[in-house]
Amino acid sequence: MARRLQWKRLAQTLDRFHQAAFSPKYLLYTNIGISVGLSMVGDTMEQSYERFIGELPEWNRIRTVRMGISGFTVGLVCHYWYQYLDYLFPHRTYKVVIIKILLDQLICSPFYIAVFFLTMAILEDNTWEELKQEIKDKALILYAAEWTVWPLAQFINFLLIRPQYRVFYDNTISLGYDIYTSQVKYRKKPEPKTE
């Protein structure tokens, strides 16, 4: 009986936390927190793999923190982007969902990728030339990956997910994409062959 009462209290506490976290008052903080946390988890998973295959000698904490900060900027972008899309297109018809997907892929995805690289360049103290070169070398790879993952994921997001859970859903799907983003961002250029 006592154990059942403890579980009931825990469930009530979690429900109150959930209601507060996804309320309009705290939703921005929740979305940013989720984005930061999962960006860091994604990078940690990628670094674990890199250490496993011998590409990385040890976990680079600064890299993980930087990826988390990029999650902050991207979480901010996603939070307001989804609100803006819902404001412009409040319905959930198939036509509206397709319009949202296209706008998301053609406007937000390139912007998101640019914000990511700009954030990382600032954190890494890269020059403008280094930033431009990195975007040239890596942005198209990430954008192509966006087209393979996000149209279907966003179809579900815009059709079925309640607006306050959109960034949470997005970040859940994005965990795999965050691993890939970390891999692309920190991929080493092959050494030029010398003869």
Rank of each mutant, 00 (worst) to 15 (best):
F158W: 00
L38G: 08
E191F: 09
L14A: 09
T13G: 01
Y186M: 01
L28D: 11
N60S: 09
S109H: 10
A2P: 03
L152C: 04
A139F: 12
Y165P: 14
W59A: 07
Q105D: 06
L142G: 12
I99K: 10
E146Q: 07
R16H: 11
N157R: 01
F155K: 07
W150M: 03
Y49V: 15
R16T: 06
M45F: 14
L56M: 14
F155S: 00
F117E: 11
I101T: 09
V77G: 09
N171S: 03
A20M: 06
I156D: 00
Y112V: 15
R9L: 04
V115A: 15
Y112E: 15
E191V: 13
A2F: 11
L160V: 03
F111A: 15
Y26I: 03
K185H: 02
K100E: 04
A20W: 10
A20L: 05
E58W: 15
F52N: 14
E146F: 08
Y87N: 07
R187L: 11
L85M: 03
Q133P: 01
N60P: 06
W150I: 07
Y177M: 02
Q105M: 13
C108H: 14
G54I: 02
T127N: 09
F52W: 15
I98L: 14
L152N: 02
I62V: 15
L14Y: 10
N171R: 06
Q6V: 03
